[in-house]
Amino acid sequence: MASRSAELSTMRASRRSSVQLWRRIQEVSLGYLLLAPALILLLVFEVFPIFYGLYISACDWRLSCVQFIGIDNYIRAFTEPDMWRSLLVTATYSAIAVPVQLGLGLLLAYLLFQKIRGQQLFRVLFFMPYITSTVASAAIWSFLYNQDKGLINSILTQFGFPALRWLSEKTGVWQMLVQPLGIELPGWATGPSLAMIALIIYTTWVFVGYDIAIFLAGLGNIPGELYDAAKVDGASGWTLFRNITLPLLSPTTFFLLVLTVIGTFKAFNHIWVMTQGGPVDATTTTSIYIFKQLFQYNRYGYSAALSFILFAVILVLTIAQNRFAGRRVVYD
């Protein structure tokens, strides 16, 4: 009697466990099934293309790999003056755009943070350029910069300044400043082209609202007691900003710095719409150079190799920023 009931209970238990096993198998298959669409798409369109791109970059590619040429495309890139010039243009663009954008963003965010009436409205307005379609705003700015009909030149001439050629001016800005004095600067001292400066003004206009939003979030995280304590000690204005705001905001600033440097090295849409890399090659950044090689000359292998080179540059820059700027970041 006792043994029978024990037998029965083990039978029930094994049946229960096989039901559980079956349920578990069902559950795990459901899980993988739910993951499959995202996983397959990411594998096919994100992971696989990296390796495929490496292969293409090692090929003389015309619809397919007609000849495997190893590192020839890379050698060609490194011996191509246009490639180096494009890197220099990109570096110039980045070196000016990043500090201007972050500096202005920080200034406006800090001002907005001073218990300002209508803070929300200001934020929304500053953010507007960022959310509008890049091609549309770049088209508007192309017209603002127009030499004969543009608003900017109208305002300049209204105040007695000469009209400028903006996006089609390849002369360096320092040279333009000393031009009226009849001075001819040597090539390396002429400064970034006016076309480049015009692009940077546009980029600042677009991204400053984004920087403000991020800086405001960072400012909000600084405990108010710190300011109160420092005020009790008699600190004010610039001292507060220099000794409390800047160091405690440094993680935010660092995040934006890394993001903005990467952004400037990848910048494409607005440059293509506004200058297509011109005048001559004055605004041909590496992104534009790669795109031209691909889009206009169908050099697949070469532009794949260039993409890897640009990626390596961005990677090295990001690591360098982590090493040098990252060290100064204060984490509490």
Binding site: E27, V28, L30, G31, Y32, L34, L35, A38, L39, L42, F45, E46, V47, F48, P49, I50, Y52, G53, I56, S57, I262, K266, F268, S287, I290, L294, Y300, S303, A304, S307, F308, L310, F311, I314
Partner: peptide
């Protein structure tokens, strides 16, 4: 769902953030 290899899969998914769009444009 308690999937075997769940954390590894999530790491793999996160790692693809590092792949810039432009790097894989040509392929």
């Amino acid at each position: 769902i308690n999937l075997p290899g769940r954390n590894l899969i999530f790491l793999l998914i996160l790692a693809t953030i590092m792949v810039p769009n432009d790097l894989t444009l040509v392929p």
